[in-house]
Nucleic acid binder design. Structure first.
Lengths: 193, 193
DNA sequence: GCGGGAGGTGTTAGTCGCTAACATGTTAGT
DNA sequence: ACTAACATGTTAGCGACTAACACCTCCCGC
């Protein structure tokens, strides 16, 4: 039971840092908020900050959705279209996240798409998601085995997704994200028929 | 004629900085090469370096291809498919660049896709290219007027392009970039028919 | 209960990308 | 030749990030 105390404390510190960081980002913007300010607001030193988060960007960007998508993807019937499998899996995962977290998600999207440094990191992260998508679709663990066809499909699907997210972020018409995703997938299909 | 001398000198300094930078990047890697080292190799101070290139990344990433694509796009018959217009314009522009610069282009792709910092900037730059694509396809200057359909198509086409470039960078099978681009476009179409 | 080891934390100092202020030299037009 | 414009160097500084070291607290075996 010993290590338990330590881990709880660590978890609480971590959450405190993240909470204060997001608060400050919201109040003064991402670039305008210094790591030292976050650390001081959380009552720790800036070195401690970096022990919990390898970079300033990582306070905002957590890769928590990837495993969700992967599982949804692997449990889809192989009889479906490649694109259809992705569409279904993404829609499924999104619906779950959306129901619980909609407002927080939107706030994070605003933050990330509004700060160039965060946007840049997001693309990197998306590359990882794409690699995961490809391996799941190709049913392999070796990235070198993924055929070009699957790569193209994965890239196109993620492009569709980001387009929908960008539209959601702009907020024109007040449409909801799941609907925008569906619409975007439909339009891609319509354009190539 | 007076300012001529100045501009020639500036141009030569600029090229010297870029040449030394690319040489050092090739020899020791991007992250391992410091701006001070580049400046000193080019015989200038690091402040001068930043007067010529706003960031270290900009030494490698020049947006010289965008206007080329735009013109090729605008001069395409509107009777074509949206995707077909993009495919044609990109193929056209690519063929020109490729014939003249193939090896230099490949070297740059290797550099950019190999260094995370450069990759990140590349995505940002691609976003600009996408915005340009959208406006050209939608025949407007106001980004807010671009319909969702066009956004989806532009995003998907660029995804296809980057997939081809990534494959070219990996170099499996020794295929050439224009062929890979064609193949990728074909596969996207095949997957959605 | 006590001593010692392990691990989280703060302090300090340093690197690197990047900016601003100011001084200097060189060039351009009169 | 004089002056205004301008390219450049020096210095100093900010902010993200790292490393070295010392401290202190908690845990475990005795």
């Amino acid at each position: 039971m010993g290590g338990d105390w330590r881990e709880r404390k660590k978890a609480r510190t971590r959450e405190r840092i993240q909470r204060e960081a997001l608060r400050l980002f919201g109040e003064q913007g991402y670039d305008e908020t210094t790591v030292a300010a976050i650390a001081s607001a959380a009552g720790v030193s800036h070195t401690t900050f970096f022990r919990y988060f390898p970079t300033k960007e990582d306070v905002v960007l957590g890769d928590e959705y990837d495993p969700l998508i992967e599982e949804a993807l692997r449990s889809r019937p192989r009889s479906e279209d490649l694109v259809e499998r992705v569409r279904g899996a993404v829609g499924e995962g999104l619906a779950a996240v959306y129901a619980a977290d909609r407002d927080a998600l939107l706030a994070r999207v605003h933050l990330v798409l509004g700060a160039p440094a965060l946007r840049a990191r997001l693309w990197e992260q998306l590359q990882d998601t794409q690699s995961l998508l490809e391996r799941a679709l190709a049913d392999t663990d070796d990235p070198a085995e993924v055929p070009m066809r699957v790569r193209v499909v994965a890239a196109a699907c993620l492009a569709v997704l980001t387009t929908a997210i960008t539209a959601w972020n702009r907020g024109e018409g007040g449409a909801e994200l799941p609907d925008l995703v569906d619409e975007a997938f439909l339009q891609l299909r319509a354009e190539l028929a």
